[in-house]
Design a binder for these strands. Structure first.
Length: 284
DNA sequence: AACCAGGACACAA
DNA sequence: TTGTGTCATGGT
């Protein structure tokens, strides 16, 4: 299947640390969306997609990739300052995906104080061991879906720890159980105001402000959510507060007012910019 | 070989 | 409210 797009940087989008299951081989990317194996390839003006099994429709993919999203409008809404111009220039065409809430939530519970390569490894192990086997084209490596809340809730802490997730295991287990036992409904958050949905997410074990904002932004599409991790913190301090060191609430207020309605998008551009730019030496 | 990584949490002052 | 120690693992 072929989808016309413009200004879509597939590589940056799939590798920028919002999703953790995409693998690059030559010019294409393979991954799993829901319970489908997918291979994506990008040409000048379109994205080519093939699936493990014939697909009857493609809404799940266009929604995930946010093909319809008008990036021009989003970029135009960014503050017109030097840091944002540099960040956009570094990865123009980067999009925010629209991921499935449970996988996104679980993934970011596993993300705390881990490098992206390690997060990918933990999630790969978890899926390989406990995820459903998926149909893949002949000759392709086996693929697995992301294990359901019920599947993980039935495990014990030691089994989770053996996936190398360390102290995050009890958090993931408790959150999986809350969802599997219907004490928490991820779907209910869709219609809520952001602030309210955030409070709900933070009530889950292992979920604080940062992880909640990641899920709000990457799964539910609340584009005002602005996750502040160590990289974004560094970006904000270096680029916007080079002299005085801002207090945390002051910084939070800044992110909520300065970057506009698409603050979350701006945040992802800053994040990617900080992680990929040439390392800055202290004497420059 | 230290230092650090898409943090959250309990507890101190 | 703001600051500190702790948690587990492995990349750089």
């Amino acid at each position: 299947m072929k989808f016309p797009v413009r200004d879509y940087d597939l590589a940056s989008t799939l590798a920028c640390g919002q999703a953790f299951r995409w693998q690059q081989q030559q010019a294409s990317w393979t991954g799993v969306i829901g319970n489908r194996w997918v291979r994506l390839r990008s040409t000048q003006n379109c994205i080519l997609a093939e699936t493990g099994e014939p697909a009857e429709h493609w809404d799940w993919l266009t929604d995930y990739l946010q093909i319809e999203m008008d990036l021009e409008v989003v970029l135009a809404s960014f503050p017109d300052d030097e840091p944002m111009r540099s960040a956009v220039c570094a990865c123009r065409g980067l999009r925010l995906l629209r991921q499935e809430p449970w996988e996104c939530l679980a993934s970011f519970i596993l993300s705390s104080t881990k490098q992206i390569v390690q997060i990918r490894q933990i999630i790969a192990l978890l899926c390989e061991r406990y995820g459903e086997s998926l149909a893949v084209p002949a000759g392709e490596a086996a693929a697995h879906g992301f294990p359901s809340p019920a599947r993980l809730a039935a495990l014990n802490e030691a089994e989770l720890r053996s996936c190398k997730m360390g102290f995050r295991a009890p958090y993931l287990l408790a959150t999986a159980q809350a969802i599997a036992q219907n004490q928490f409904d991820l779907e209910r958050l869709r219609g809520m105001p952001v602030a309210e949905a955030r409070i709900e997410l933070i009530s889950l074990p292992g979920v604080g402000r940062k992880i909640a904002d990641c899920v709000l932004l990457f799964a539910y599409g609340f584009q005002a959510a602005f996750p502040v991790d160590v990289w974004v913190m560094k970006a904000l301090c270096e680029l916007y507060f080079p002299r005085r060191r801002p207090t945390l609430p002051r910084l939070q207020h800044f992110t909520e007012t300065y970057f506009g309605d698409n603050a979350g998008y701006a945040q992802q551009y800053l994040f990617h910019y900080m992680r990929t730019r040439r390392p800055v030496k202290s004497n420059e």
